[in-house]
């Protein structure tokens, strides 16, 4: 292609078309970079529940013998139970397929509604399709308040 003759034929300046193309391509590149960059940098931020140091608190006075108090911590359903005066905390997600188990005070067991797994009051599996225990959750007790952090 002959640039000089091309420039004479054309009524606009020789660099106009090339400049337009460059700007259009550059603009699309910047727009795409933004469309990818914005969600990705947002994804890398700390999620709210983590930056707030999400903590769960249970006043021990509310926890009667043989009962459970449920709460949420970092997206997990947590059961705090009291058996024989002892306090324990478990992640309620069944280790089988992740359904949330239920506490049955009468039999002192956790029962899973999904496929019938049964766990004892120390989280050990006693029946059903699992042989893994409920995950026990560490906690601190201070001034008669149980805290999970």
């Amino acid at each position: 292609m002959n640039n000089a003759s091309h420039a004479q034929d054309s009524s606009s300046k020789p660099s106009d078309r090339r400049r337009f193309c460059k700007m259009a391509i550059g603009g699309m590149a910047v727009a795409s970079a933004g469309m990818v960059g914005y969600p990705v940098t947002t994804f890398l931020k700390l999620p709210k529940s983590m930056s707030q140091q999400g903590s769960m608190e249970v006043p021990l006075a509310d926890l009667a013998e043989g009962t459970a108090i449920w709460g949420e911590h970092l997206g997990r359903q947590i059961a705090v139970i009291k058996v024989d005066g002892q306090v324990r905390a478990f992640n309620g997600a069944c280790p089988h397929l992740g359904c949330v188990v239920q506490w049955e005070g009468a039999t002192r067991t956790f029962k899973c509604p999904c496929h019938g797994a049964v766990f004892s009051d120390n989280g050990k599996p006693v029946a059903g399709p699992v042989n893994a225990p409920l995950e026990s959750v560490p906690f601190q007790i201070q001034d008669d308040v149980l805290r999970i952090t």
Partner: peptide, 30 residues
């Protein structure tokens, strides 16, 4: 990116994917 939060453990896998989808900013999109 998903690997930052995903936990390959039967007790936590589902929780971690749910966490990505509902708590991580833009996690649902990724």
């Amino acid at each position: 990116l998903l690997l930052i939060y995903y936990k390959p453990d039967p007790g936590r896998a589902w929780d971690s994917v749910t966490f990505i989808k509902s708590n991580v900013p833009m996690g649902w999109l990724i």
